[in-house]
């Protein structure tokens, strides 16, 4: 499905390292540095006006943000973008200026997975409270034991 778009994108952005990922839902892996430019291009030139979902995933070697894009006006094939972020300082560009619908979703990814979105208008926790420590959807988050609010270490 997104093979043609991938080829067009590769032509448009010759310097960036794109990758076509086979799978049940084929996806395009994008360099974190080029994400914003590419997202803008996809919206303005390819007609992907609808950002459905933003997901953060914690893999053993990296963080990944997955964007599910559709086109409401042109009814195009779905397009999936995947962006990797480093384990130490995970940060990718915010796409909220392009698709305002990403606002709460990026805040949720920041809240639960701990990936920062550069350029987000208000990157604060959304589901958990301010002052909460840790990001529960990370794989190293302790799922057993008790911790009182404000207590440092899980006991």
């Amino acid at each position: 499905m997104s093979k043609e778009i991938y080829e067009r994108l590769a032509k448009e952005f010759p310097e960036s390292s794109l990758d076509y990922l086979e799978g049940k839902d084929p996806a395009i892996s994008v360099n974190a540095d080029d994400l914003f430019e590419m997202a803008l291009h996809l919206k303005e030139k390819e007609g992907y006006d609808y950002l459905s979902a933003v997901t953060g995933v914690d893999y053993p070697d990296r963080f990944e943000v997955v964007y599910h894009l559709y086109s409401m006006r042109e009814r195009k094939e779905p397009l999936i973008l995947k962006v990797s972020a480093s384990k130490e300082e995970p940060e990718v560009a915010s796409v909220t200026p392009i698709w305002p619908g990403a606002n709460f979703q990026e805040r949720e990814v920041y809240d639960l997975v701990g990936i920062r979105f550069a350029g987000h208008p208000k990157l604060t926790r959304i589901l958990l409270w301010e002052g909460y420590e840790g990001h529960p959807l990370r794989k190293d988050f302790p799922i057993e034991g008790h911790r009182a609010i404000g207590q440092e270490e899980p006991s």
Binding site: A53, T55, V66, G101, N103, F104
Partner: peptide, 30 residues
Amino acid sequence: GELGFYLVSDGSTNPYRYKIRSPTFINLTV
């Protein structure tokens, strides 16, 4: 609205990632 599930499987009995794209949460953005 659009209710979606994004699942990542590592081949085990549990999902590696289980994401719910809930329609009303995103509708509230506006």
